Simulated scan of single mutants.
Amino acid sequence: MVTQKRNKQEYDNALKDYNQQMQNLSQDQIKHDSGTFTWPVPGHPLSQYYAKVNWSADITWHWDVAQKAVIVTKVNVTFDRVNPNYAGGGFWDAFVFMNPNTNVPQEAGTYLRKQGDIPGINGDSLWQKIGGGGNSGIFAFYTQKNSTHEYTIKYDFNNSVPFKAVDNHDGTWTVLKSVIRQNDGGVGSGANALFHILWHNNDTKVTVNPNIPTMPTFKTTEVHYHYNQAYDLI
């Protein structure tokens, strides 16, 4: 058997490059993302909406080698409300950015069409009702009454930080998720139609891709042979 070693200098260079990439990933990274969320009016052109909000997010994160995970250390979100151009029956729509590990808010309750929403609801009471503040995992909160267009915006960036991002198992990690408040469209018809409150995850989210490099290995090439007497020439 003959063993031929791989070029040592080639391996050393690859290992040096790998270590540098991992060191860079362990330092603070900033992910900036932005977008717009709109509550359209069913059956109307997309240019008509109950509410609209532009959002911008800056997330500070790094790769933790020991945990093999993305760790978020700072969250900053800004909401910029756009004036609505359509009025509804009085429901408080809400759009909330949260720690991706946090459960979707729960809010029991029903109301009649003529009521518009659960009695006593406003921006401050809704914030309290879903546990805003403290260690709730809620970072940014926007809600608006779709009849009068009264609105509330609240931020709380200190709670639940730092935290481990959610592994999407496709190379990306979710560092910020959103949830929305809406109703089920009502059961029945007319003024006596009964509506139920719904909170659920929304597709709007912020993700990062750390692009973890593959650690180089130092391999050898092996050549196996045997002596064949059939080719033994005298």
Score class of each variant (00 low, 15 high):
residue 6 R to L: 11
residue 7 N to L: 05
residue 15 L to N: 02
residue 22 M to K: 04
residue 25 L to W: 02
residue 25 L to Q: 06
residue 25 L to V: 08
residue 31 K to I: 08
residue 31 K to N: 05
residue 34 S to F: 05
residue 34 S to R: 06
residue 36 T to L: 09
residue 39 W to K: 07
residue 41 V to F: 02
residue 43 G to S: 09
residue 47 S to P: 01
residue 49 Y to L: 08
residue 51 A to T: 11
residue 55 W to C: 06
residue 56 S to Q: 12
residue 59 I to F: 09
residue 63 W to R: 06
residue 63 W to E: 08
residue 64 D to N: 15
residue 68 K to S: 14
residue 69 A to W: 11
residue 71 I to K: 00
residue 73 T to N: 13
residue 75 V to T: 15
residue 77 V to N: 07
residue 78 T to G: 11
residue 79 F to H: 03
residue 81 R to E: 15
residue 81 R to V: 14
residue 84 P to C: 12
residue 84 P to T: 10
residue 86 Y to S: 15
residue 91 F to M: 06
residue 95 F to G: 00
residue 95 F to Y: 10
residue 99 N to E: 00
residue 99 N to Y: 00
residue 100 P to H: 03
residue 102 T to Y: 03
residue 108 A to T: 13
residue 111 Y to P: 08
residue 116 G to V: 08
residue 118 I to L: 13
residue 120 G to H: 06
residue 122 N to F: 12
residue 123 G to K: 06
residue 125 S to I: 07
residue 128 Q to Y: 12
residue 128 Q to W: 11
residue 135 N to A: 12
residue 136 S to T: 05
residue 140 A to H: 02
residue 143 T to D: 06
residue 144 Q to E: 15
residue 144 Q to F: 07
residue 145 K to N: 15
residue 147 S to M: 08
residue 147 S to N: 14
residue 154 K to A: 00
residue 158 N to T: 14
residue 158 N to I: 09
residue 160 S to D: 05
residue 169 H to K: 02
residue 169 H to A: 00
residue 171 G to Y: 07
residue 174 T to D: 13
residue 176 L to Q: 00
residue 179 V to Q: 03
residue 179 V to P: 03
residue 184 D to R: 11
residue 185 G to A: 10
residue 186 G to R: 07
residue 186 G to D: 11
residue 190 G to W: 11
residue 195 F to I: 05
residue 197 I to P: 05
residue 199 W to I: 00
residue 200 H to N: 10
residue 201 N to P: 03
residue 202 N to L: 05
residue 205 K to S: 07
residue 208 V to D: 11
residue 217 T to C: 11
residue 219 K to S: 14
residue 221 T to C: 09
residue 223 V to D: 09
residue 225 Y to Q: 07
residue 228 N to T: 01
residue 228 N to L: 04
residue 233 L to T: 13
residue 234 I to H: 10
